[in-house]
């Protein structure tokens, strides 16, 4: 492996080996996440349609919650990873943290997009409207817009150090909306269902188990998507380095 003066996000000019800036997750681990997602998602579907009982009030629409709630929780998890990775980047300047934050933000936007698709499809038959400016819905839409703007920002700042710093700040500040989303239904009057799980006893065991299987299945899906997205980031960085070296 040859040493060259490769561009680094911390601005240092000392020689660095020509190698990917992001440590690639082991191929076996990535395949394991994919396999686990492939196994658990059909289990979730089977449980959502055949194991969990039909809700007496909401009818079939209640089954949307088995993908809606896990998607929301995994979206929060993805943005928490962005938050931590952004702090780590500002503290260390290491590119791997910026790549992790960018990857998790993109995957998080996909999961929260699913929430914004499934929510209105539950709201229409149960509430009678697709959308209402309810505190929970509004704060969640703002969360989605914040991380969408995070991705747009990354696309519009060509210089890597500034891009990483700007997006790290947005990744940290944007995460402040997550507790607001979570607590919005308690702080303000909201039509959105709350205490779905935490105040046990209100949700039949079969529904609760199905919901938790959904969280597990979507966690595996998140880990798989994140690992593939990080590999894409690593390959892109390697291609950029190769062009600089030439």
């Amino acid at each position: 492996m040859s040493d060259v003066k490769a561009p680094t996000l911390d601005g240092s000019t000392r020689p660095r080996p020509v190698e990917p800036a992001v440590a690639e997750p082991a191929e076996r681990t990535r395949r394991l996440w994919g396999l686990l997602a492939l196994v658990t998602i059909p289990v979730l579907l089977a449980m959502a349609f055949w194991y969990a009982p039909e809700d007496a009030n909401q009818g079939a629409a209640q089954r949307i919650f088995y993908i809606h709630v896990p998607s929301a929780w995994i979206g929060f998890l993805a943005f928490a990873v962005v938050f931590v990775a952004s702090i780590a980047f500002l503290a260390t300047g290491a590119r791997r943290w910026d790549d992790l934050a960018a990857s998790s933000a993109e995957v998080g936007v996909v999961f929260t997009s699913a929430v914004l698709i499934t929510g209105p499809l539950w709201g229409r038959p149960v509430w009678g409207v697709y959308w209402t400016w309810d505190p929970r819905l509004t704060s969640f839409l703002m969360l989605w817009l914040i991380y969408l703007s995070y991705l747009v920002l990354r696309g519009y700042v060509p210089e890597p150090i500034r891009r990483a710093r700007f997006s790290a700040v947005l990744g940290i500040v944007g995460f402040l909306d997550v507790p607001i989303v979570y607590l919005s239904a308690r702080w303000w009057r909201s039509e959105h269902p709350t205490q779905f799980v935490v105040e046990g006893g209100r949700l039949p065991d079969q529904m609760l188990v199905t919901m938790l299987v959904g969280v597990v299945a979507f966690t595996f899906l998140y880990l798989y998507l994140l690992s593939v997205r990080r590999r894409v980031a690593r390959l892109r960085a390697a291609a950029e380095l190769e062009e600089v070296v030439r």
């Binding site: 079939a60 949307i64 993908i67 699913a114 499809l121």
Partner: peptide, 13 residues
């Protein structure tokens, strides 16, 4: 009938 909404939600996701 909320079945069509359920189907669209799962297929859309």
């Amino acid at each position: 009938n909320s079945v069509p909404y359920l189907v669209v939600a799962y297929l859309g996701t």
